[in-house]
């Protein structure tokens, strides 16, 4: 463990003061084992109290601190600075409106989630105990339930940037998660919703979402399976 000097360039935007976002450079001394979040805390607590960012769990499960560092979408809490060296460039996620500094408006992101009916739909009577679901059936959706809704994927998606109506990878992954759940009866509904140019068909398998996903979920692959399911269903 050693202290090192780093140079941190942050895209700042203070509503009411700044007409548009501007870069600000901070020179700070931090431990070499620091994470991006440690660096932001150091700046916020010791240098400039006006810096705003989101964070909560520190253990890459809450999804608050997704942001762009040196051009990559990462969770600030789990990303060590040594991954990028001593020069950091930190920006808010792309494709969302900036509220202040690194804080973006995620309401549209969560609104999209709502549109795919993100809950188990069961038309049969509930069993007394649990539904029987084999480990193989669970395997189909297992990885997709890891999604922490951090929005790193949607912010990395070139199909999402020009088109705010596109459902985006996170909502579509959620659709996959329920369509492929052996307990769910709502597939027809959901497939109809995603079967749209603003739904699953705007995904051009660019793989950016997959690369950005901090949970390493194979999003593009699951969306491809969803597409096939839509086609199967409409034939």
């Amino acid at each position: 463990m050693a202290m090192i000097d780093i140079r941190v360039k942050i895209l700042r935007y203070q509503p009411g003061q700044d007409a548009k976002p501007r870069w600000q450079v901070f020179a700070v001394k931090v431990e070499d084992e620091s994470t991006i979040l440690d660096v932001l805390n150091e700046i916020h607590w010791q240098h400039d109290g006006t810096l705003a960012y989101r964070r909560s769990c520190r253990s890459s499960i809450c999804g608050s601190c997704a942001m762009k560092v040196n051009g990559r979408n990462v969770l600030a809490c789990e990303t060590p600075i040594h991954r990028f060296g001593t020069k950091l460039k930190i920006e808010p996620l792309s494709g969302f409106e900036i509220i202040k500094d690194l804080v973006v408006d995620l309401d549209p992101f969560f609104e999209k989630l709502k549109r795919i009916k993100p809950y188990l739909i069961v038309d049969r009577p509930m069993p007394d105990k649990e539904f029987v679901q084999s480990p193989q059936q669970l395997e189909q959706i297992g990885e997709s339930t890891l999604c922490i809704l951090c929005a790193a994927c949607s912010a990395a998606c070139p199909s999402s940037w020009p088109n705010s109506d596109y459902l985006g990878p996170a909502a579509l992954l959620k659709a996959y998660r329920f369509v492929f759940d052996s307990r769910d009866d709502g597939a027809d509904d959901r497939l109809e919703i995603v079967n749209d140019k603003n739904g699953v068909w705007r995904c051009h398998t660019i793989f950016n979402c997959m690369e950005a996903c901090p949970k390493k979920i194979k999003i593009t692959e699951y969306l491809s399976r969803l597409k096939l399911k839509v086609v199967e269903n409409s034939l």
């Binding site: 649990e130 084999s134 480990p135 059936q137 669970l138 959706i141």
Partner: peptide, 14 residues
Amino acid sequence: EHMGVPFSRTADGR
């Protein structure tokens, strides 16, 4: 479970 929680399963699906 009825709400959809993806619990890990035993070999016989419980």
